[in-house]
């Protein structure tokens, strides 16, 4: 991440790590989680669920970017995706 001014405590603060989980058959492919993830972690995949909707996946090179902010959980209208603290 680029800072316009380097925070004084940058070395002390640890960026949280998140792990993403999905309940595939609940997804209706609205794209909210993909579009509004603050870190742009997700993108649409080729994989389709039982209802015929394309599931989100983790974009190339973004595997370690989830910060466990859980925004995807709140905005998902289907309770299909959430994050938890990762390792």
């Amino acid at each position: 991440m680029k800072y316009w001014r380097r925070p004084l405590d940058k070395d002390k603060i640890k960026t949280p790590k998140g792990h993403i989980y999905i309940i595939p058959d609940r997804c209706k492919g609205c794209g909210f989680c993909i579009e509004f993830c603050p870190k742009g972690v997700l993108e649409e995949s080729d994989e389709i669920n039982r209802k015929g909707y394309h599931l989100p996946k983790i974009a190339d090179g973004k595997e370690d970017d989830c910060m466990n902010c859980n925004f995807c959980m709140l905005i998902c209208p289907e309770l299909a995706i959430y994050t938890e603290e990762g390792e």
Binding site: H19, I20, Y21, I22, I23, P24, R26, L42, E43, S45, E47, L55, P56, K57, I58, A59, D60, E63, M73, L79, A80, I81, Y82, E84
Partner: peptide, 10 residues
């Protein structure tokens, strides 16, 4: 890039 699949939501 596949997201880990689970059955339940918190």
């Amino acid at each position: 890039g596949r997201i880990e699949t689970v059955e339940e939501h918190p």
